[in-house]
Design a binder for these strands. Structure first.
Length: 276
DNA sequence: AACAAGACCTGCATGC
DNA sequence: TGCATGCAGGTCTTGT
């Protein structure tokens, strides 16, 4: 489900709702998600206090005492803060934390592509899931020079390359499509042929991600913030999901094509392949 | 090394 | 109404 803007929107909601709260009890309603829940998870968390909620790429980091909980929402994961349901819960409410003040935090994930892991707070960045991640697209490390260097020798489609978490951490299918539209590149262009577009790509990535965060992310199916609100950036997609519609800029029909197994949307006129 | 394809799992929309 | 099919915001593993 969620790409960087959705995860960041969730993070902001969790930060407000969870900072300083006590974790009274932890209930696990199945043994695993994508991976088994960590050994001793409940015992480690219970009685602790949530100090901060951070984000790295599409991962949420919940700091409590000496530990950091690493959570990924996969395709369909949600975190919700709600008044305690008591014994009852909804289907796919896999992990529930009883908090103070009669509230609970719920991890809900129908497809179970998401996961929850635990690491030591002092060395969270060394965790295998986080160690190899590339630069934050909204951080100071993103530059045209960095992109050009990373494109070197890469023949994969630029869209697949943008979604490579070792290059850029946090871009998924939607925002790769939208960013490429904004910089006028055909998504199937080999990455190594896109060097001349590096400056435009930096601008396009920052703009589309910042606009999406300002809109509260995109809600296609079940994405919602911790408070249960839906985002509305999906109404601002220019190409994603718009196959058959007219391009806003030139009126050409937007087409879709499967690239590296993922649906890819683009305007054939605004997004030519360089040199073609 | 770089790349493609399949696997993981459920829910939903579509078409017969 | 019921069933089969295909598709979905991600990542990991396997095979070429």
């Amino acid at each position: 489900m969620p790409e960087l803007p959705e995860v960041e929107t969730v993070r902001r909601g969790l930060e407000i709702g969870l900072r300083g709260r006590m974790i009274r009890r932890v209930h696990l309603h199945r043994p695993d998600l994508r991976y088994p829940f960590p050994d001793g998870l409940a015992e480690i968390l219970e009685g602790g206090q949530i100090d901060s909620v951070r984000r790295r790429a599409k991962f949420l980091l919940l700091d409590t005492g000496e530990h950091t909980l690493i959570a990924h929402l996969g395709m369909s994961g949600r975190f919700l803060i709600r008044p305690a349901y008591g014994e009852s819960r909804l289907t796919h409410d896999h992990m529930v934390w009883e908090l103070d003040a009669g509230h609970e935090l719920v991890y809900h994930d129908p497809r179970r592509f998401g996961f929850v892991l635990l690491t030591e707070r002092a060395c969270w960045a060394e965790h295998p899931q986080l160690k190899g991640l590339g630069v934050e697209p909204l951080g100071p490390e993103l530059s045209a020079d960095y992109l050009r260097a990373q494109m070197e020798g890469r023949r994969v489609a630029v869209k697949q390359w943008l979604m490579d978490q070792r290059v850029l951490a946090g871009i998924g299918n939607i925002y790769a499509c939208e960013a490429l539209y904004r910089c006028g590149l055909h998504p199937a262009t080999p990455a190594q042929a896109c060097g001349d577009y590096a400056e435009e790509m930096v601008t396009a990535l920052r703009e589309v991600l910042e606009d999406a965060i300002a809109s509260g992310g995109s809600t296609l199916r079940n994405y919602a913030t911790a408070a249960g609100d839906t985002g509305y950036f999906q109404h601002r997609f220019r190409v994603y999901g718009h196959a058959g519609a007219a391009c806003d800029y030139c009126g050409t029909t937007i087409t879709s094509q499967r690239i590296a197994g993922r649906s890819s949307f683009f305007c054939p006129s605004c997004q030519p392949m360089p040199g073609a």
